[in-house]
Write a protein that binds this DNA or RNA. Structure first.
Lengths: 222, 222, 222, 222
DNA sequence: AATGAATGAGAGTTCATTCAT
DNA sequence: TATGAATGAACTCTCATTCAT
């Protein structure tokens, strides 16, 4: 969780000046990694972009990968915050789903380059990649679980459902936002279709025989 | 299609011996790329694995990327063939969906390393990556469209639905197969849950008011 | 003089078919060497241009350099023949000089690319390079010597004078033909100026006191 | 003029230590290029000679060619300085010509290997090659023009005359210095002969009819 | 903290030449 | 003769990282 003491010394700035320098580098890293991808990005260019000397990079980051991973975590925060904001105040789960999906499209469209960083993380640091999705899924599942408890949606394993919905969102975003030069032209139509699928998929099944003891959440099908 | 005459000459073998050598290299590339990933894989190791001299690689492939791309296309063929086989003879669309999903899990479990090649393609050759999914989606959409025409499933844009289902499959495979050291322990349970979602999502809506003129299937974008 | 038996066997074609194949390769070599220069030219491209297989090259030439050297010698022949033709029938030495200079300009303009081969020979095969100029100088000196004997031009070491005049021609051709995209726009004006210089330079000195015994040619100044 | 930011960063040393290292590499390059020629010279050898690591080369030079070009420009400076020094204090143009010619022979004899660098530049970087001669010619022409204005020498296009004289010098140096294992044994005799030619060639023509209006010196082409 | 010079392993790629057919 | 596959040494260049100041 905390990436301390990997090799050469302190990595956390103490002075305010240090904190600023570190931030400058991180922002430059965001730009360069986003533009070039992990492998093509060079630390030299990051430093040039940040207006810092080559050596300074290693004052604040253990190595190239450490900076990248930090960026992935940062992005995870941002995405989750964005989604949380978009969802807040929505009356019911389906409204939340739609708001979340559209917000995600918007995020991807707005940070096209940047979003590739997350996807590339799979090949740079698998743990950071899993962490990103696991945390996203946790938040997702929590919302779904609550909705299930309110009998708003069909009772299914929330984690599985979360990955289903994340997968849908991810692929739709890839196909109709990323591959569409980032325009949101089709976003509404695509979201409509997806929401039809999701709404029906999650709709409560016609209650055949009311069961006294409702089964533990995870297990449901048959 | 054929990238001739730019640099060192012909790339297509003429003799049978040549065809064999090329195949040997391609198999070695599959192994090494799968094991190490694109960036970490070295052509020297591919050649060592294939038992060929370094220069021989360039007799058959223009460069590192060309071999990788060829591999991605090859994998696309294999996956599509596998899925087509798994689906054949299934009585209805939902049975096909389930068979396809499970077959996909099995493919991923069996070729865990290899499957990373496809995912990494996004960062090596975007075109090959898109091609992979576009072709897969095309086949998928065709099956869905037919089912819609038979009134087996809800009428929606087949391409969008295809990407939704591919996304679900992809993420589930990632989470419960790839991250699970490739075991298929959870596969059935996960497939069950997913199928509940899919079946409900694609089920024909309760016909409220019978419409004379059923709406034309939405046309495929671009 | 004769480049026999360097390594692998016979290099001289016996059949007529062989002679043709060899010629085809030599012409291709001329084109490719001329276009790319010695180092950048590849035997593969020469063969491709000739429509021959890679291995065929070594049937007719010992190696890359051998073909190049042969080409340089060939060019030497052509240049000397061209000059000889241009000079023939000129009434006096100065007319010959001018005709030769202009013919040289024309040759360079016409075979711009090709002429670089000669110049590059200095760094590929010094002997071939010297041979080229030595032979040219020999012819030049012979003509000059004859003119001296006819008391048409000032008596000086003909070889030295030859190199002086070749140097002038070479540099003028370089500056006003090669660097001028091969146009001959300035050729006349340049030739005029050069001829003024040459004519005065070679003009008989005002005979001060007639000497009985004229000195051996090479030694003249003081 | 300065080729910044294209690839790996700054090329101009900032510290004194850097300046020294750069110089060390440049001197090594001079030695190795001179000895082996451009193509045969390897950067590895240059670094070995300089006692520097391979990577250091690229700290100071963008690539092999850049170092070579810099060397050519450097040589140009040296040659021009040498000639300027040799010419200074000579009473008249002909004395200057002779001094320049002999100084040039001496330079070639002394830096035999080095002088090949200039000649090879034609095939490595045509622009640097032209620059070398264009600058030399400019200085030459200036001196000639002044002499013409003083009515010391015949009035002709100074640039054309410059190239004539440079060509003579070049070829004589090649034939009687470079090909003579660098000895200056023949230098005097050759210089004498050449000077006879030059002196007569440039001598003022016998004033047939005194012209009021002396013709404008021909203007320099482009 | 900050700098920038120094490092050197390692990569992809080329190509003249040889060899088996 | 003619072919084209096979070879592997050699090359230039990159770049993450360390070090001295």
């Amino acid at each position: 969780m905390n990436q301390s003491s990997t090799s050469t010394a302190r990595r956390t700035p103490v002075t305010e000046r240090g904190r600023q320098a570190r931030l400058k580098l991180l922002r430059a890293a965001e730009e360069v990694f986003g533009e070039k991808g992990y492998e093509e990005a060079s630390i030299a260019e990051i430093c040039r972009t940040a207006g810092a000397a080559l050596g300074s990079f290693y004052v604040y980051f253990a190595d190239k990968k450490a900076a990248f991973v930090e960026l992935v975590d940062l992005l995870g925060h941002r995405v989750r915050r964005e989604l949380a904001t978009a969802i807040a105040d929505r009356p019911d789960r389906m409204a939340q789903e739609r708001a979340g999906l559209v917000a995600f499209f918007r995020f991807v469209a707005k940070h096209k380059k940047l979003y590739r960083i997350v996807r590339q993380a799979e090949f740079v640091d698998a743990a950071a990649f899993r962490r990103y999705y696991a945390r996203l899924a946790a938040g997702y599942a929590k919302g779904l679980g609550a909705a299930m408890d309110r009998d708003e949606v069909r009772r299914l394993d929330p984690e599985i459902v979360s990955y289903c919905l994340m997968g849908m969102g991810d692929f739709l975003g890839m196909r109709w936002v990323l591959w569409q030069d980032g325009s949101l032209a089709d976003a509404e139509r695509v979201a409509d279709t997806a929401m039809t699928l999701i709404a029906s998929g999650l709709a409560l099944p016609p209650k055949s025989a009311p069961r006294k003891q409702r089964p533990a959440r995870p297990r449901e099908p048959s």
